[in-house]
Design a protein around this nucleic acid. Structure first.
Length: 482
RNA sequence: GGCCCAUUCGUCUAACGGUUAGGACGCGGCCCUCUCAAGGCCGAAAUACGGGUUCGAUUCCCGUAUGGGCUACCA
């Protein structure tokens, strides 16, 4: 007889206050990986109870970013703004059972108390005055329409949070306040709606950012008051910028959208973020989604914060570009070509596919790839100034003329034949092959660096190659005259 | 201020009391080479500090320092 374990249920609960932050993505991804590994359920819940800050478009942006990242949820999205009945009922129950009470102070009064405490250099705590109001008086004042909040009666005992990553964490009772559950306008506050929802959705594991650890004793007390089982907690280290401050806009790209627009593949971003905090062991780094889903374990997730390193992300992106099938990469590069600024023109696929093989080891993003491919779609608009200075000598035009002549009569336009022809020409001219190769690359692509020249020539074809060479000769002739 | 968390190369991390402290990014060098990359090989680079516990501490405990988080009728 095998013991039947309850199905693990986890959730990702972003608040729609902006674009999807990479720190949030890491949290979402750890939840997802955990759910897959444990054969559990991954739920998406949008925490939009803050009416001033939440907007519908921002929720949609989060949804589309999650889709792009492949963060597929099993249930949801659930919107807290549509679950107010639940919170209201829970508040009533807490009040009726004496686990919560109404408090009638105004925000101004509380603010004054807080300032006073601060001025005296002591820690502010709510006075607890509301606790002393008899229930019938409380009910009467509420019925009379007097503005009030609902506060939780915090127990006077040390609360121990059992954290899967950090072990037991103790919070002495006197550090905890009777915090507000429901605002005077009837809106549930974050801590309250979270716990009501986690209880109602039967969440078994709460995997979230470290910034919530200090709030967790409140949640434990709330779950108890609600009569709900207490989920397991796992608090992940924060993701920091290079200055060790919480990663934000000022550090450059901090959101999924920005990295997408920079030409980073979702698979690479997923892989990179998964490895921030989680060490799969055996020094493995490039892992497929399947491997990650099979092996993810909170036992191997660290507690310390980690710095987001764009360089390593870009390296990993290059690794994914190196391994991705050509067809797939072409689709990704095409998408990037449209969002690049300026937008890049793409060559036809019979040219683009072999061009991708030429350029994939020399780009780190699909934007860079799109730019490289665009060179096959249109003639260079200008030539690199340093390149002109370095590669074009007084004798260069005459030498190139010779080569163009030779190429014009070339029938075998394969890389091998083109190389042989160029080397013969160089030899007959009595110069090193490089004296021809570098100016030709500049003529064909506008720059001095890039894929092996003869492959480029072969791919461009005879007509285009000769046209570009002749145009280059005209240009440098003009340069010489002026 | 109070409470809480964290601390191994510059960065991500491995080493669950005994290792020449391992790997990766980045950096430097060499090889390959028509350039630039990619790739291969080599190299420099770390246990924050101070006390304990122990035959032995990166590892366990305490303190200090530093960084971070929380301390709202924000999430």
């Amino acid at each position: 007889m095998t013991e039947t374990r309850p199905v693990p249920r986890v959730r990702f609960a972003p608040s729609p206050t902006g674009s999807l932050h990479v720190g949030s993505v890491r949290t979402a991804l750890d939840n997802l990986l955990f759910a897959r590994r444990e054969k559990g359920v991954f739920i998406l819940r949008i925490e939009d109870t803050d009416v001033e800050r939440s907007k519908a478009e921002l929720s949609d942006q989060i949804l589309s970013s999650m889709k792009w990242m492949g963060l597929d949820y099993d249930e949801g999205p659930f919107y807290q703004s549509r679950r107010y009945d639940l919170y209201r009922a829970a508040a009533e129950k807490l009040l009726a059972e004496g686990n919560a009470y109404r408090a009638f102070e105004t925000p101004e009064e509380l603010d004054r108390d807080r300032k006073a405490a601060e001025a005296q250099g002591r820690a502010y705590r709510y006075s607890g005055a509301g606790r002393a109001i008899p229930p019938d008086e409380s009910d009467r004042r509420a019925r009379a329409g007097e503005r009030h909040v609902v506060r939780l009666k915090m127990p006077a005992e040390t609360i121990v949070v059992q954290d899967l990553i950090r072990g037991p964490v103790e919070f002495p009772a006197d550090a905890l306040d009777d915090f507000v559950l429901v605002r005077s306008d009837g809106h549930p506050l974050y801590h309250f709606s979270v716990c009501v929802d986690d209880a109602e959705m039967k969440i078994t594991h709460v995997i979230r950012g470290d910034d919530h650890l200090a709030n967790t004793p409140k949640h434990v007390a709330l779950f108890r008051a609600l009569g709900a089982p207490i989920p397991q907690f796992a608090h992940l280290g924060m993701i920091l910028g290079t200055d060790r401050k919480k990663l934000s806009k000022r550090h450059g790209a901090a959101s999924v959208e920005e990295w997408r627009d920079a030409g980073v593949l979702p698979e690479a971003l997923f892989n990179y973020l998964a490895l921030l905090g989680w060490a799969p062991g055996k020094d493995r780094e490039i892992m497929s989604r399947e491997e990650m889903e099979k092996e993810f374990s909170l036992d191997r997730v660290g507690a310390s914060p980690s710095v987001f390193d764009p360089e390593k992300l870009l390296w990993m992106n290059a690794q994914y570009i190196a391994r991705m099938p050509g067809e797939e990469l072409l689709a990704r590069a095409s998408a990037s070509s449209a969002t690049a600024s300026p937008p890049q023109e793409m060559p036809p696929r019979d040219v683009a596919l072999p061009a991708i093989e030429l350029h994939r080891p020399r780009v780190r993003t699909t934007i860079e790839l799109a730019r490289a491919l665009s060179a096959y779609a249109r003639d260079p608009g200008q030539y690199d100034a340093d390149g002109l200075r370095k590669q074009v000598r007084p004798e260069t035009p005459a030498q190139l003329e010779k080569l163009v002549e030779r190429y014009a009569s070339q029938t075998d336009w394969s890389a091998g034949a083109l190389e042989a022809a160029l080397r013969e020409t160089a030899e007959s001219l009595g110069v090193a092959a490089g004296k021809l190769i570098h100016p030709v690359r500049l003529a064909l692509t506008g720059v001095t660096v890039g894929a092996p020249l003869f492959d480029v020539l072969a791919l461009l074809g005879k007509e285009t190659s000769l046209r570009r060479l002749r145009r280059f000769l005209e240009t440098i002739a003009r340069e010489v005259r002026t």
